[in-house]
Design a protein around this nucleic acid. Sequence first.
DNA 1: AAAATAAAGTCAAATATGGTCAAATCATAT
DNA 2: ATATGATTTGACCATATTTGACTTTATTTT
Lengths: 162, 162
Amino acid sequence: MSISDIIEQYLKEILHANEKKVIEIKRSEIANQFECVPSQINYVINTRFTFEKGYLIESKRGGGGYIRITRVEYQDEFQLIDEIIAMINPAVSEQGALDVLERLREKKLINLREEHLIISALQREVLNLPLPERDHLRARILTNILTTLKYINSKGEERDGM
Amino acid sequence: MSISDIIEQYLKEILHANEKKVIEIKRSEIANQFECVPSQINYVINTRFTFEKGYLIESKRGGGGYIRITRVEYQDEFQLIDEIIAMINPAVSEQGALDVLERLREKKLINLREEHLIISALQREVLNLPLPERDHLRARILTNILTTLKYINSKGEERDGM
DNA sequence: AAAATAAAGTCAAATATGGTCAAATCATAT
DNA sequence: ATATGATTTGACCATATTTGACTTTATTTT
């Protein structure tokens, strides 16, 4: 068993223990505790606590910094979102984006209000770049929004009566 | 949690408590109270009580000096949004946008989920243009979103339990 | 009016975190 | 034995916070 395995175990233990869905660690502390270099913690996190494996990572640098690991459950909707992301990249027209959003709403992944807000970020006149850069930019923005959608859902954040 | 966070909390508590829209502090006193150097108070104010977040800072040096923090209020949501639109144009940094969104959420014009979604459309790496065009683009997108927000609100559309 | 005193402001250095990336090493499968 | 992938390590980077020396301004004292 490698150190990475041991650190993984340790983190999962405290994470899965007593209903806790989230832990906050200090990278340097853990590194110290297991007598390894700090970047090893990143390695463990990058290989064992990925989103696909059901974990959400957030962090902050500087004084009072931390790494937060949140346990999340996989949702069927992820697959749909991933498919859409694949579909719209590397470029998508405004109409294409509109279609996608309509579909997401049918599937109840977003509500009408959110659909309006998202569209506002994707319109031709707003992005205002020559083609084909504009369609690339739109794809990047929408991809980022969709990715966030996955994460938000995972965090079990307020769904606002949807 | 860093000292800066604690001082921020403390100030917001007394500021938001009992309808007060304004507080006056003595920098050296607060510094004393939290056992930090006086300039740390400036740091807290500069990073946590920005104009974009809806705070107004005034101060006076010398004997009887003070720092006054005012929570800026608007009569209605339209005015607030218009004010923000004016503020962020023709360009806004990512931090400026974050501050503005935090404020909109405090004012319950958007919820946390919407805040995340909107941020996804404004991030540096996503917009991916050289400055200053990037900040211009961000301002255009956010302006369009805010305009939509005004419209949605006035339509009395589903607010999703907000 | 000048000097002393009492604030607050600025700015850069020091410190405290975490992130990235690639080279070195180790383990495993063929 | 060698190729391949996983792990370990460290140099360098990015960011947030803390600290303090120096500056500016207002008031009070002489």
